[in-house]
Design a protein around this nucleic acid. Structure first.
Length: 582
DNA sequence: TATGTCTGCCC
DNA sequence: ATTCTGC
DNA sequence: GCAGAATGGGCAGACATA
């Protein structure tokens, strides 16, 4: 297949929002492709040249692509940047600048070039990547250039994700979605949809059924939905299990004798980062072949208090691993068992898996079973939730008692309840809008995609940034924000604004919005409370609540001092004694 | 050698 | 991570 | 309710450059 033809399919996909139509187009694409192209097309649809768990990245994004485009079309970087700001899509910038070509490349040829770009590393590799992409774009038609750029950005924006591909694969072979279940199962246990598609194409459903769970190969992780109260959870699940939720990182552990692998939520192999966990696993898991999951969180070995996420995340590293392991040791709180000695446990109901899990863990000081209660009473659930909060945890996860382990999907079998979802418990901040950023993709047409907001420092009589926010408002509200803010836009940063971040458009500090966040964190970029070399403060997971607050003026917003107070308070509330351990 | 820019991956 | 939107 | 596409803070590491 020519890349031009693939691009035509992409164009058709982009032109509809109807999921059934998309499925038919995708199926058509798969049927017209050669067998050896199918897996590669699927990787490209995901913005990659390999399955996600392989460490093969382009190492190229916005800035470097801009350089490639400038080079390919003999424009200045500033020209490209300006077009990008206007259009909101680098692919469309390329499309606009490119000229029709007589010749075209095969899909496999383009794939090879992209693969080579991903392989480049070491001294001079940045320049080499930029050049290689520049040459590729020069060889391609406008439409093909657009999609190549978007593939590298990992934002094809076709409305196609893995579930759509699975439906389409089934539809391509059978004319309905009935084979999806087999495709999905194979995908869940191999985490490589390109490979699954190829096996399916070559050997049909029978070949898919032969795919087995392999210890050492990551299984796609189950994810939790959200609700905002104990009542809603009980209403949804009835009698359910309730476990604490830790603010660390998800670990899927594979043990094959003394061979251990630890995968991240996105199925990256992070084993080498956690020698302490590996030791613990060897000592505390008796069975030969096991796959289980938990949350790893660092703690202060002197006081046994859990550390905040910002500490734990420092354990995600390549160098100085042993040093950091002694400073920030990890505990692994395990909550699910997927596989034991040849037996796939994922179809078993939660409680059965839980029982089995309890049998394979030997008590020790690294691995702990998560505590849990079983209840159908919202009051009890709420009490457990509050207990978790007092212990400095993130909240709880409620689980449907009879649900299998549903790999790869986010659904209501698991429901998380976090402190910040309960507005009476969470910190909201009133902040003043200091500027805005142009939107990308769907947001480009609004000319706004995010706000820069700040709080007030009365001592210096100035506003200091505390967050960028791109979530919360509806499309209608974004349009209104744009209109209202354009009326007070200013050419330069106002003198009473302190910011290291430069928005696309500065505005006079006037309008107030209410911001909800999960936490206040120390920030290297936001200027709120920043003093010389000292770090400032920022909001974790900020979102806009409602619209502009007409009842408040800029001077009425939350002050820097109040933010610092809130930061101290949130630290005090965490009086962890690790009493959730069994 | 030190610093700055960019990217990828945690949440 | 959170949130919004079309189906 | 699902699936997809917008968007956040902040860490380490790879390269480039001063």
């Amino acid at each position: 297949m020519l890349f031009k033809d693939l691009s035509m399919f992409f164009k058709r996909l982009e032109s509809t929002t109807k999921r059934n139509e998309m499925m038919v187009i995708l199926a058509d694409l798969f049927n017209k492709a050669k067998v050896e192209e199918i897996d590669k097309i699927i990787y490209l649809l995901d913005g990659r040249v390999a399955p996600p768990y392989e460490k093969l990245e382009f190492g190229m994004s916005e800035k470097l692509i801009i350089r490639s485009l400038a080079q390919a079309f003999l424009k200045s970087i500033l020209d490209i940047e300006n077009m990008y700001k206007e259009i909101g899509d680098l692919g469309e910038v390329a499309e606009k600048l490119a000229e029709e070509k007589e010749e075209d490349m095969e899909v496999l040829e383009v794939f090879k070039v992209l693969y080579d770009i991903a392989l480049l590393s070491g001294e001079g590799s940045v320049e080499a990547k930029v050049n290689k992409l520049g040459y590729l774009i020069r060889a391609l038609s406008p439409l093909s250039s657009k999609y190549v750029v978007r593939i590298i950005l990992g934002r094809l924006r076709l409305g196609v994700g893995e579930p759509s591909i699975m439906d389409a694969l089934s539809y391509a072979k059978k004319g309905d979605k009935n084979l999806r279940q087999y495709i999905e199962r194979a995908f869940n246990i191999t985490s490589d949809l390109g490979y699954v598609a190829k096996v399916f194409w070559e050997g049909g459903v029978d070949a898919l059924k032969k795919i087995k769970v392999e210890v050492g190969r990551p299984i796609r992780m189950a994810l939790a939905e959200r609700l905002s109260s104990a009542e809603e959870i009980i209403k949804k699940l009835g009698k359910c299990s309730v476990e604490p939720k830790f603010d660390g990182f998800r670990c899927q552990v594979h043990k094959n004798g003394t061979e251990i692998k630890i995968f991240s939520r996105n199925l990256e192999d992070n084993t080498h980062m956690f020698p302490d966990l590996v030791q613990g696993i060897i000592q505390q898991v008796s069975n030969e072949k096991v796959i289980f999951e938990g949350e790893a969180i660092s703690y202060n070995p002197e006081t046994n208090e859990f550390y905040p996420f910002q500490m734990t995340v420092q354990r995600k590293r390549k160098y100085d691993i042993d040093k950091m392991a002694s400073m920030f040791p990890l505990k692994l709180f395990v909550f699910d068992l997927l596989y034991v000695d040849g037996e796939d446990l994922t179809p078993l109901p939660y409680l059965r898996r839980r029982e089995r899990l309890e049998k394979i863990i030997i008590p020790g000081d690294t691995i702990f079973l998560t505590n849990y209660i079983i209840t159908n009473n919202p009051v009890e659930l709420q009490a457990f939730f509050e207990e978790c909060i007092t212990e400095g945890l993130e909240g709880i996860v409620a689980k449907r008692l009879d649900a299998p382990y549903q790999a790869g999907v986010r659904n209501f079998n698991w429901i998380k309840l976090k402190r910040s979802y309960q507005s009476q418990l969470s910190d909201t901040v009133d902040a003043v809008i200091l500027g805005y950023f142009k939107g990308r993709g769907q947001r480009a047409k609004f000319g706004i995609g995010a706000l820069l907001v700040g709080v007030y420092n009365p001592d210096e009589d100035r506003y200091e940034t505390i967050a960028k926010i791109g979530t919360g408002p509806t499309e209608e509200e974004w349009v209104k924000f744009r209109e209202i803010l354009d009326e007070i836009k200013v050419e330069e940063k106002p003198h009473n604004v302190e910011s290291q971040i430069i928005p696309d458009v500065w505005v006079y500090p006037k309008y107030v919005v209410e911001i909800q966040a999960d936490e206040i964190t120390k920030s290297p970029v936001h200027t709120c409370g920043k003093n010389g070399e000292k770090l400032g403060y920022a909001l974790r997971f900020p979102r806009v609540i409602g619209f502009i607050r007409e009842d408040k003026s800029a001077k009425d917003v939350t002050t820097v001092k109040e933010i610092i107070e809130m930061y101290k308070l949130q630290k005090k509330e965490i009086i962890s004694d690790n009493s959730v351990e069994k």
